[in-house]
Computed example of a mutant assay.
Amino acid sequence: MRERHASQVGRRAREFEAFVAGAAGRLLHAATLLTAEAPADNPRARRLLTLALAQTYASWDRLRGEDPYARARQHLAARFAHGAWHRYGLLGRHHPDSGSVLARLSPQERLILVLRLYEGVAEEQTAALLGLPSERVQGIYARAMATLLHPPRSAAPAVPGARTVPS
């Protein structure tokens, strides 16, 4: 009986290790996009990934044919949304100081953009994952894309010695 249990535990560990070997790089990249950290300096993304993989491992035996990558991505998105909620309130407008173009987006906009654009998750699935109506996800996604494609212009530099016109 113990040998059988040890064999099952070993098999489970090997399966999970193989999954991590194949999926961890892509999941880390998604987490780095979510946190808008620099790829070389991404402690929040690494923590998100670690927690998501731990949750996936804890439910490994209950997957029963379900895609483990989809489950890990779901845990990653939920952890990110939960952390943003508690840190900034209702996925507010926090802009990390990373220099990333994604830093211009709110955490919610980043989450939807990464799920839809980078991960290729359908609009309906994204809506279900986040508990939002599909139309809301569509609107947030469109706003995020517009922000990235048409960034606000910065003020023109001041010209030394130029006169200002009184208004």
Rank of each mutant, 00 (worst) to 15 (best):
R64C: 11
H29K: 08
S59P: 01
G99V: 05
I112P: 02
R116Y: 10
V121W: 04
L102A: 02
R87C: 07
L113K: 07
A31S: 09
L49Q: 07
G89M: 11
L27S: 05
A70N: 03
A72P: 06
H82A: 14
G25C: 06
T32C: 01
L34C: 02
D61I: 06
G25I: 00
H95L: 10
W60V: 11
Y57H: 11
V121I: 14
A18H: 12
A72V: 01
A38M: 08
Q108D: 12
A36S: 09
A103D: 14
L111Y: 04
R104C: 06
V20T: 12
T32S: 02
A52E: 12
E119N: 03
R87D: 15
W85I: 12
R44T: 06
A103H: 08
F19R: 09
G120T: 03
T56Y: 03
A54I: 06
Q55W: 07
H29M: 10
R116N: 10
R47N: 09
R73Y: 13
R46S: 08
L28Y: 01
R44V: 03
S106P: 03
V121F: 01
A23R: 12
L105R: 03
W60C: 11
E37P: 04
R64P: 02
D41P: 01
H86Q: 14
L53T: 11
V20K: 04
A77H: 05
H75F: 10
V121L: 15
Q55C: 07
Y118A: 15
A24W: 08
P107K: 07
R64W: 10
A18C: 08
R64D: 10
L90D: 15
W85N: 13
R47T: 12
R110E: 05
F19E: 07
V121T: 09
Q74N: 10
W85L: 14
L113Q: 08
W85M: 12
L117G: 03
L49Y: 02
L53S: 07
L102S: 02
T32M: 01
Y118K: 09
R110Y: 03
A78R: 14
V121M: 15
H82I: 08
V101Y: 10
T32I: 00
V121N: 04
G65A: 12
V114F: 02
T50I: 03
F19G: 04
T35L: 00
L53F: 07
F80A: 00
R93Y: 14
H29A: 12
S106F: 06
R47A: 08
L105H: 03
A24R: 14
L49V: 08
G83E: 14
P107W: 08
D61Q: 09
R62D: 13
R26A: 13
L53C: 06
R46C: 00
F80V: 00
L28V: 01
W60N: 05
